[in-house]
């Protein structure tokens, strides 16, 4: 088990190094100079050169790269060209907003996904099942930005129930979190439904029922445990895509999170902030993958034995 964990950790470090390298060179491969983007077309050339020197952009690329890696190890990503603050600070202040949004969306998706999936599976091809299938198809295929704007129209513009944007009150969280949750919700829902349907015909379920166990215990304990593995895998991996979806949702709802910080930073060629954001998101991805793998070991005795 320890060896397994250590091996996973070593791979994680390699992945992180890869992500850092890709973001460093990708940002510099795109045309557009950060100093010019900050100072605009009217700055004189001397001022642009001075700013490039100040941010170390005048050094040869390999030297900048080594410098970047060395400082990244100590969580120092340099200063934001645009917002005049340490990139690490900016990411951390924005991360809590994104984390709150993503976690709420995750909880909504899991709770609703399990609830609706179980409802659908216990009465296959019933009315509930049909409605749920159509809804899940819709929520999966509708683009996030469109859903967000529609929610704003209905709940803010017409019903005046919820604030349309910002993060000033707890209520402001509802629409962005629901918007973000919908694609994941439909995935969880379908996995739970098909997983339960498969399992409910297994012999051991028949045995459990024959023992006289209550239906709640049969479905909620015996059956549920066995269909959890694919759900945990997918839910874990999809948590990462929630962070990706946050980029769009945060723009639509003016939510002050990492996604919006990153899109603004990319447009402004604010290298340090883009690098800090990407590496932070990569770390989150890696940690979640680790957790998912370790959870497997807990959930599936076969995996437990093999490691």
């Amino acid at each position: 088990m320890l060896r397994y964990a250590l091996r996973r950790l070593a791979i994680s470090v390699l992945v992180l190094f890869g992500a850092a390298t890709v973001v460093f060179f990708a940002m510099r491969a795109v045309s557009g100079d950060p100093a010019t983007a900050v100072l605009g077309p009217d700055a004189d050339q001397a001022a642009v050169e001075a700013l490039r020197r100040e941010y170390g952009l005048d050094a040869p690329l390999p030297i900048q790269y080594v410098q970047f890696l060395r400082r990244a190890v100590t969580l120092d990503f340099g200063e934001s060209f645009r917002l005049h603050d340490a990139a690490t600070n900016l990411v951390f202040t924005h991360l809590s907003a994104t984390a709150a949004l993503a976690l709420t969306a995750f909880v909504i998706a899991l709770v609703l996904g399990f609830a609706l999936g179980t409802l659908a599976a216990t009465r296959p091809h019933g009315v509930v099942d049909r409605v749920v299938s159509v809804l899940s198809m819709l929520t999966q295929s509708l683009p996030t930005f469109w859903v967000g704007i529609m929610l704003i129209l209905v709940f803010s513009r017409f019903l005046h129930l919820l604030p349309s944007s910002g993060a000033a009150s707890p209520a402001a969280m509802i629409m962005p979190a629901v918007t973000l949750a919908l694609p994941l919700l439909s995935v969880v829902l379908r996995l739970v439904r098909s997983g339960l349907l498969d399992v409910l015909h297994e012999d051991y379920v028949v045995t459990a029922r024959a023992k006289g166990l209550s239906e709640t215990r049969v479905v909620g304990w015996h059956a549920m445990r066995n269909m959890l593995i694919p759900v945990v895998t997918v839910a874990g991996l999809e948590f990462g895509s929630l962070l990706g979806g946050a980029v769009i949702v945060e723009t639509v709802f003016a939510w002050p999170g990492v996604g919006r910080l990153m899109t603004d930073a990319i447009a402004a060629r604010d290298y340090s902030v883009v690098q800090a954001c990407v590496i932070t998101v990569a770390v989150i991805f890696i940690v979640i993958n680790l957790i998912v793998d370790l959870l497997y070991v807990r959930l599936d005795p076969r995996v437990r034995e093999s490691v």
């Binding site: 609703l112 609830a115 179980t118 409802l119 216990t122 209520a171 629901v178 909620g220």
Partner: peptide
């Protein structure tokens, strides 16, 4: 099936939470 009730309860809980509106005046 009692499981229907579990599902329905959870569903009602989340929907209830979502429908609440916290009016704030800033």
């Amino acid at each position: 099936p009692p499981t229907t009730r579990i599902g329905a309860l959870a569903l009602a809980g989340v929907l209830g939470l979502t429908a609440c509106s916290f009016g704030t005046d800033d």
